[in-house]
Design a protein around this nucleic acid. Structure first.
Length: 498
RNA sequence: GGGGGUGUAGCUCAGUAGGUAGAGCACCGCCCUUUUAAGGCGAUGGCCGAAGGUUCGAAUCCUUCCACCCUCACCA
């Protein structure tokens, strides 16, 4: 049955309702009980109380002059019993025009069928919205991944466990806000459209403002704006940041994603470690009723304190190399040993070190583990270590082998910050696409003086993946980025493009 | 971008020595007043992802392209 035929059948029913004097798209329905209310309070309601419930018809079992149906609402589902002798001949005719997927409201008395199921004996009902497109298979549901992502509403209708994932996501966000608010952090909003991007090493999206006639960047991080607020005397700030990075997409990366960034005056990265381990273990305690986190068959325990190990020590342990003492040429040789086919000569020192770490160390990091004291070369915004040369007071939290948070004792020496920017610019000029550009406005702010500050960014989507045991970031973002459907038609493709 | 997989009815899926397309559910018609994926009988329904090619003949073989999934590379 071609889809147009199915639609036409249903559109014909819309007309049929109208001819019966019934508006198939009315304005309101007074709901007095949800499906769950009725089930939970059945003993008080049974056989006497008239209830009004509404939802989507998901199953209809027609048996001539009586029928059963399953009505789904946000709280669950409830069975309906329609009898011609109860609703009347005309209404029963109207009932026969209903399809799976229609939204209806019913009025009736709860009772228990002879098989024991709690059911509303419908005395009257109203069509609330006629659906003109068929749902997926009532038993097999919707499996196709592409359709599930593109038509998330269908996914939510057909796969109830999907909504649970997003309920947990919302509760996690609420938990973060409460936790930070209770510790005197203030939530703020900073620009998404920025004349300069910064705060992370990544490629940005570029857009254009017509009136100003200038290009703007979609933010890749909020860091530099939040620090301006710290300079302004807001001692504890945080932001739920929708960030945008113009890079590859896979099951760990969506072009737009959510971070939580927070900054605390007079604190250092040790304070950030403590805050993070307390916050996440408390969150697990509240949402998962325990500190154990099980992800794709692997279990870790979030009970604090978490192990701390330095970046260079980890490299030494897993590779035997002492990267800090190696020259650029030696680093390139080491990288070539790992991946001979790649061209490492174009990579600068920071990139080489980062490459070796991710190859040799990352696969071993189940966590929870604080990887501390990152190389200066890849940490242009963190303060130099108070006692170790060549490294910064920066850590990343690893869970299940993946980075989920990044924090430092923030660099507040304006002249040192300027030198770090200058190094980034030099690397940019020699071809590194992911560098921090010079930000004079930020430097001016820093020159007024920023207190010692601990700052942290938490990759929220990944955390949701771990807390909901979802394998792909697309499963924790309601509308993940996909190529537009129209593009799939080859007759739209310009042949000049390669 | 590289490698692998998938794409057939609205949905879920079958379909190879290449022979002209199938099932279940949904939809439509008939029977059925306590069913549970209700049941029974019957009927519709496909540019087999797109475009080329090989062949008497292509869902099936070849080429190119598109989308999605996995994976590698860069990143959170």
């Amino acid at each position: 049955m071609v889809i147009n035929k199915l639609r036409e059948d249903r559109i014909a029913k819309v007309q049929a309702f109208r001819q019966m004097g019934i508006d198939p798209y009315p304005y309101r329905f007074e709901v007095t009980y949800s499906s769950a209310d009725i089930v939970n309070n059945f003993n008080e309601l049974a056989d006497i109380t008239v209830v009004k419930a509404a939802g989507r018809l998901r199953l209809i079992r027609r048996m001539g002059k009586a029928s059963f149906a399953d009505l789904h609402d946000a709280a669950g589902k409830i069975q309906l019993y329609f009898r011609r002798d109860d609703v009347g001949v005309d209404a029963y005719k109207a009932f026969r025009l209903l399809d799976l997927g229609d939204i209806i409201g019913v009025e009736g008395v709860p009772f228990r069928t002879k098989t024991g199921e709690i059911t509303i004996k419908v005395s009257s009902f109203e069509i609330l919205c006629k659906s003109i497109r068929p749902l997926s298979d009532k038993w097999r549901g919707l499996r196709n991944r592409e359709t599930r992502y593109r038509q998330r509403y269908l996914d939510l209708i057909m796969n109830p466990e999907v909504e649970k994932v997003f309920q947990i996501r919302t509760r996690m966000m609420s938990f973060f806000r409460n936790y930070l608010n209770n510790r005197d952090f203030i939530e703020v909003e900073t620009p998404i459209l920025q004349p300069l991007y910064g705060g992370a090493l990544a490629r940005p999206f570029i857009t254009h403002h017509n009136t100003l006639d200038m290009d703007l960047y979609l933010r890749i991080a909020d860091e530099l704006y939040l620090k301006r607020l710290i300079i302004g005397g807001m001692e504890r700030v945080y932001e739920v940041c929708k960030d945008f990075r113009n890079e590859g997409m896979d099951r760990l990366h969506n072009p737009e994603f959510t971070m939580i960034e927070l900054y605390q005056s007079f604190a250092d990265y040790f304070d950030m470690m403590e805050l993070l381990e307390n916050m996440l273990s408390a969150m697990a305690e509240e949402l998962l009723k325990g500190t154990k986190l099980k992800y794709q068959g692997v279990e870790i325990d979030l009970t604090p304190p978490w192990r701390r190990e330095s970046y260079y020590d980890l490299v030494k342990r897993y590779s035997g190399w002492n990267l800090m003492e190696m020259s650029d040429a030696e680093l390139a040789a080491a990288a070539a040993e790992i991946a001979p086919e790649d061209n490492h000569s174009a990579k600068n020192r920071g990139r080489l070190i980062d490459f070796i770490f991710s190859e040799k160390v990352e696969p071993h990091l189940i966590g929870p583990l604080f990887v501390t004291d990152f190389p200066l070369e890849i940490s242009p915004l963190s303060k130099a270590h108070r006692s170790e040369a060549g490294v910064t007071e920066r850590f990343e939290l690893y869970l299940f082998g993946r980075e989920v948070a990044n924090a430092f004792s923030e660099l507040n020496d304006p002249l040192e910050q300027r030198r770090r920017f200058e190094q980034q610019v030099r690397w940019s000029e020699s071809g590194d696409m992911e560098t921090q550009p010079m930000d004079e406005d930020f430097l001016r702010a820093l020159e007024f003086g920023m207190p010692p500050t601990g700052g942290m960014g938490i990759g929220f989507d990944r955390l949701v993946m771990f807390f909901t045991d979802q394998p792909s970031i697309r499963d924790v973002i309601l509308f993940p980025q996909l190529r537009p459907e129209e593009m799939s038609r080859t007759d739209d493709i310009d042949e000049e493009e390669e």
